[in-house]
């Protein structure tokens, strides 16, 4: 797949999205997370017990290479800011928003849309709990912004099924964008 895809956050959404994209043939990924793998992540993220305490960028790359040894993802263990986002995601036709706090999500979305003209943002919002998974949908919000999720669920814990449903929406939308099934084609 010729399109470079950035993934901001390698938690429940981002780590699962990365696996789905690699299984779908994506090799040019930029993986960004400043955190390390914690015990509480194992209920929904792709990591294994042996990864506890290891950087998520490192653990995620290791797992992705077990699926496709040819991939060499670009990794960055920085905290994303308005200043570093254009540099970190340089060359990405799509940036996947998979961060945790609403402020960080809004900051990333706003920065990519204003500073990286041409890039699409695929965001996840509203995935907590075990409410009806049919409430999780993909919405085309702005010209270059899609948001997946139910838009409201932020209370309670996060669990693998609903988080993975949303990650599936995000990964599927990326395939649709790349294969030109959504209204516009992606340029690098």
């Amino acid at each position: 797949m010729a399109v470079r895809v950035g993934i901001a956050g390698l938690g429940g959404l981002g780590s699962n999205i990365a696996v789905m994209l690699v299984r779908s043939g994506f090799r040019d990924l930029v993986l960004v997370d400043f955190d390390t793998v914690a015990e509480s992540n194992l209920n929904r993220q792709i990591y294994f017990r042996k990864h506890l305490g290891i950087k998520k960028t490192e653990a995620c790359s290791e797992i992705l290479k077990m699926i496709d040894p040819e991939i060499g993802p670009v990794t960055s263990d920085v905290r994303l800011t308005e200043q570093n986002i254009p540099e970190v995601f340089r060359g990405c036709g799509i940036v996947c928003e998979a961060l945790d706090s609403p402020e960080a999500k809004a900051m990333l979305v706003n920065t990519v849309l204003t500073e990286m003209p041409g890039a699409y943002v695929v965001s996840g919002s509203g995935i907590a709990g075990w409410g009806c998974p049919n409430d999780i949908i993909t919405k085309h919000i702005f010209k270059k912004l899609y948001v997946c999720g139910d838009g409201t669920s932020d209370t309670g814990d996060m669990h693998a099924p609903r988080v993975t449903v949303c990650a599936g929406h995000q990964a599927n939308l990326i395939l649709r964008l790349v294969y030109g099934m959504e209204d516009e084609k992606i340029e690098r």
Binding site: G12, P102, V147
Partner: peptide
């Protein structure tokens, strides 16, 4: 105007 408000969880 189109406004989208993000909620936490990732």
């Amino acid at each position: 105007l189109e406004i989208v408000s993000f909620v936490g969880g990732g």
